[in-house]
Design a protein around this nucleic acid. Structure first.
Lengths: 269, 269
DNA sequence: TGTATCGGTTCGTATATTGAACCGTTGTTG
DNA sequence: CAACAACGGTTCAATATACGAACCGATACA
């Protein structure tokens, strides 16, 4: 581990919950010597990555970060921060993967990637995802802004016999998704298509969109579902990271519970 | 210079104009050995501060920056990023300093600091700054969004005999400010008060507010004006830095020209 | 007054950083 | 197509630099 890496890991101890940290406290958190930590902080300070609160002498994140964030945002727009992830997701699951972004009360498709693994596969040819009838849309309802539900109720088009048709049915679906952390759409938008989605968060800390895998219902086994869910969590974490967000703890918890519950075939290691 | 500092300075070579940089190119820019630069980049990459474009192998700023920016924004709201600067500004000039922020088409006072240097001094007791009649407001018109001018025209209250009363008079003032980089208010809001303001920019790259010094007209000499302008540029750069922005090049140029022109007493060193 | 903790400093030791030279690959060019 | 140049990445001896135990002065508390 290079000294630079060690210095940079100091930054990871700052959070909105612990925005300012004193030297000694940071030593304890990082498990390193005081002199070392001090020198690292000095290096970070000269680069503008941390600064000292003049009053308390405690350290906090510095202004240089805001400047770099501006460049990063211009450099890597959302799409490029997601495209490689969904490629890997499609590859790992052998199914079609896609990402959506929420803008206002509309959920747009950002990009999709089909896997050549099967001759029959889901094709994502929609650009606006119905909130009430897609895995990604249900994710948005479950983890996005609350007023989204009202908006969804005004556009409850009936796509298949399984499409939720009443506010109560939709609320039930959403409630279930809040428990599992995954949006699921079992042929509620298109017959023969079964999709699972996971929410993605951006730098504002809010729901930003969803990453999803769409499979063909006839080959959708619980084994595949398990794989998809595992890969989805990886992809959701990765995209969230690329977009500067964090996965809320309760969603991580829901994922963990949801995956172990369905995991009845494997030993608990 | 520590190796960490050297590694971190690599980041400063990234900009919106040059968002991706190859290894060799970065060596040239940084004037350092290729092996060294490579290792530094690796350290930065493990920390998520840079990442590689898989296609070109070029490096670009990484996702960790967005996450830290979120924490920084929560940690240091605008006021704390400006307050110490205007304290120093008040101290250096011996006059009252203040900062304003633009929100929508309204310019709010953020905080002010009086200098105890003189018995008579300007007191900033307004919370909404008229765009057409204050140094900060004129700055906003000159360097802020264009539609601000229309908005200003609808509220052209007449405060003193010098307050611009016609759209043409206001446009003339604004045009002059664009040339000098400083908003000036010679008793156009309050008799006996002469103020100079400089624009401040935030992480979006746009005009975010102004930093200003208000003096008493009777003691306002060209010598004091020179001092204030010099200190204002320092303060504007500092607050801009704290807010994650950069001073546009043409404003820096305007400042330089504006200060050297008025500087007829000192040798050009 | 004594003690504990804070941020910061010193200095000899040894470890991690350095850069010239090298490698394999890619793309260009006469 | 062979020669060449430029690329990203790797090696290894030399040494510059990072390390941490011990120390300092200030502050707070009892």
């Amino acid at each position: 581990m290079s000294s630079t890496t060690k210095a940079l890991t100091l930054l990871s101890h700052f959070s909105t919950k612990r925005p300012e940290i004193g030297l000694s406290q940071l030593c304890r958190l990082a498990g390193r010597d005081k002199a070392t930590t001090y020198r690292h902080l000095q290096a970070l300070e000269t680069a503008g990555f941390v600064e000292q609160n003049p009053a308390t002498k405690h350290y906090r994140l510095g202004p240089a970060i805001m400047h770099l964030a501006q460049v990063r945002e211009a450099t890597v727009p959302r799409e490029t921060g997601a495209i490689n992830v969904i490629k890997e997701l499609a590859d790992a699951t052998g199914e079609t993967a896609h990402v959506t972004v929420l803008s206002g009360s509309t959920l747009y498709g950002l990009s999709a990637c089909e896997s050549p693994h099967h001759a029959t596969r889901a094709v994502i040819d929609i650009s606006i995802f119905p909130l009430h009838a897609t895995a990604s849309g249900l994710c948005a309802l479950a983890f996005g802004p609350e007023d989204l539900f009202q908006s969804a109720l005004t556009k409850m088009e009936n796509f298949t016999s399984a499409t939720p048709a009443t506010p109560e049915a939709l609320a039930d679906l959403v409630a279930h998704i809040r428990l599992t952390g995954f949006g699921q759409a079992d042929q509620i938008y298109e017959d023969e298509i079964q999709a699972i989605a996971a929410p993605v968060f951006d730098h504002t800390g809010n729901f930003a969109g969803a990453v999803a895998v769409a499979s063909v219902a006839s080959r959708f086994t619980s084994e595949l579902e398990k794989t998809i869910k595992a890969e989805l969590t990886i992809a959701a974490r990765e995209i969230t990271r690329n977009w500067g967000g964090v996965i809320p703890a309760q969603i991580e918890k829901a994922w963990a519970a949801s995956i172990t519950h369905s995991n009845t075939l494997e030993p608990t290691s």
